[in-house]
Nucleic acid binder design. Structure first.
Lengths: 163, 163
DNA sequence: CACTAATTATTAGTGCACTAACTATCTGAG
DNA sequence: CTCAGATAGTTAGTGCACTAATAATTAGTG
């Protein structure tokens, strides 16, 4: 219906460049919101939001981790992670206590319930790929494209702001 | 450095499925945030946030539009658009008045300043592609992938929730 | 050793995004 | 013609995400 769009994108700049439907950034944000939205019914059963799910993935990989560490792994500001962790603590999935030997850092640790939730979560990736009708190859291809894009933005950040 | 990831994804499900770095949804959200972040310095000069930029693109295409119309074009809830429009009105870029003939609908209209801003904006797409080091072909390819993904999520939404 | 620097986390403030609840207007079936 | 239901926007409430400012601890240098 509306997929002539890409095929007709010309090689040089035109005044069509400002058409909403031609914007990669628009397609990307819609895709992101749509995919996250598709996770919702599945994650609801675990009682997690999508960002919370990502934090849990992080902790299932290794358990006592600092805020800075998690923040780095998720490419998110500590100020974003902080309240998120507070909610996960309230939900009884993690504990937060100062690290011994370095009282400024926080030791974020899975509770028994938090660790146990992993069992239910193992089904999530497969369920989602099936729901979206993606093969492992397609998913891998998209993953690679996104990784490249992320790298491109890092390069762009290094260029202009001139720090 | 860390790009062995995709090449080593096996064909069948393993316990590695829960590794953060293997999640497409993670790569997608990071890519989305990163790209939007890359727009920031450029859009700052126009005094727009990225979501506001998308609304303006919308209005530069056709000017008196209803909230519902804009909401549909941007794939966003009216409740999200509403306060966003209020800020654009405060910024003097648009006006909001009830439509004559249908007092429930709103006529969102560009002001002179709003229309004029388009001149500055014409440079944005080109600037961004250059900054990200993307060719038109690459951008087109990514755009097509995102469009497919979006379609996949729509299909998924139609399946399960069974309305 | 003292005092500045850097590191780590949190808080405040703004803006997006969504759901649910509400108001106002319009439409259409009886 | 009337009033139940649909339509269009807004508001309230929650949660993310970012920047800037703050507090607390640690490390390093003179």
């Amino acid at each position: 219906m509306t997929d002539v769009t890409v095929a007709t994108v010309p090689t040089e700049g035109t005044q069509d460049d400002l058409l909403l439907e031609h914007q990669l950034c628009f397609a990307l944000t819609v895709a992101s919101r749509s995919v996250v939205g598709a996770y919702k019914p599945v994650l609801d059963e675990l009682g997690l939001t999508h960002p919370q799910y990502l934090v849990m993935l992080c902790l299932w990989e290794s358990s006592p981790r600092s805020v800075r560490d998690i923040s780095g792994a998720l490419a998110q500001e500590p100020a974003t992670i902080s309240p998120l962790l507070r909610r996960l603590e309230t939900a009884g999935l993690i504990t937060r206590q100062r690290m011994e030997g370095n009282e400024r850092a926080l030791a974020v640790r899975l509770t028994q319930r938090g660790a146990a939730l992993r069992e239910q979560a193992t089904a999530v990736p497969g369920t989602m790929m099936a729901r979206l009708g993606l093969t492992r190859e397609q998913a891998g291809q998209l993953h690679a494209s996104m990784t490249e894009l992320i790298a491109a933005t890092k390069a762009a950040a290094g260029d202009a702001p001139r720090r």
